[in-house]
Amino acid sequence: MADRSQNAPLRLALVAHDAKKDALVSWVQAHARDLTKAELFATGTTGGRILDLLPDLNLTRLKSGPLGGDQQLGAMICEGRLDGLFFFIDPMSPMPHDVDVKALSRLAIVYDLPFANSPSTADFVLRGLIADHTAG
């Protein structure tokens, strides 16, 4: 997890492939109470869809994933500016920017960043991050 002040909000990244955007938006809506306390970053379209539904979230929209948003998140991981990555990946669809997806996944692993790829995993990761944040 990133180094930061104990009083600072959790900093979380939200990304989803096209076929998984609905699932991520639904997951964010279900966890809105906890996520209102976090500083959120999302790639372009995903962030727009979330803000359309939940405009009061503290969410910064980055570029679309294939247009540089994945790299923006990668830089944030390298700089220790994120506490968790929620990337809902669609394993059944072709990925035109597969190298970007692999690079982002690789960075999350290299920097030991909590990383969730599905709603059930995201539930556990978020609970763990919140517990760690409040205990610390």
Results as ranks from 00 to 15, higher is better:
Leu54Gly: 09
Ala116Asn: 08
Lys20Ala: 10
Asp83Ala: 11
Phe41Asp: 03
Phe88Cys: 08
Leu35Gly: 04
Arg11Lys: 07
Gln71Ser: 08
Thr36Ser: 13
Tyr111Pro: 00
Ile50Arg: 00
Leu82Phe: 06
Phe87Asp: 05
Lys37Tyr: 08
Leu104Arg: 01
Glu39Asn: 09
Phe86Arg: 07
Thr43Ile: 07
Val25Trp: 03
Leu14His: 05
Ala116Tyr: 10
Asp56Lys: 07
Leu10Arg: 02
Ala103Trp: 05
His97Val: 09
Leu59Pro: 02
Val99Ala: 07
Ser64Asn: 13
Pro9Cys: 06
Met1Ala: 13
Gln29Tyr: 10
Thr60His: 08
Ala108Ser: 08
Leu107Cys: 03
Pro91His: 09
Asp90Leu: 04
Arg61Ala: 10
Val28Tyr: 01
Asp22His: 06
Glu79Lys: 02
Leu107Val: 07
Met92Gly: 12
Lys20Val: 12
Ser118Lys: 08
Leu62Thr: 12
Asp100Gln: 10
Ile130Val: 15
Leu113Asp: 01
Leu62Gln: 01
Ser26Leu: 11
Leu12Met: 12
Ser105Phe: 07
Ala2Lys: 07
Asn117Asp: 05
Ser5Glu: 15
Gln6Phe: 12
Arg81Glu: 14
Gly68Glu: 02
Leu126Arg: 04
Arg4Cys: 12
Gly48Arg: 09
Leu53Gln: 14
Ala38Thr: 13
Ala23Lys: 08
His17Ile: 15
Ile130Ser: 04
Ser93Val: 15
Phe86Asp: 10
Lys37Cys: 09
Thr46Gln: 02
Ala32Ile: 14
Asp123Pro: 06
Asp123Ile: 13
Gly44Met: 08
Leu35Cys: 11
Asn117Met: 15
Ser120Asn: 05
Ser64Glu: 14
Thr134Leu: 15
Pro55Lys: 08
Gly128Phe: 11
Arg127Asn: 06
Ala42Gln: 05
Asp98Glu: 11
Ile109Trp: 00
Val99Met: 05
Ser105Cys: 10
Pro66Glu: 13
Val101Gln: 02
Asp112Lys: 03
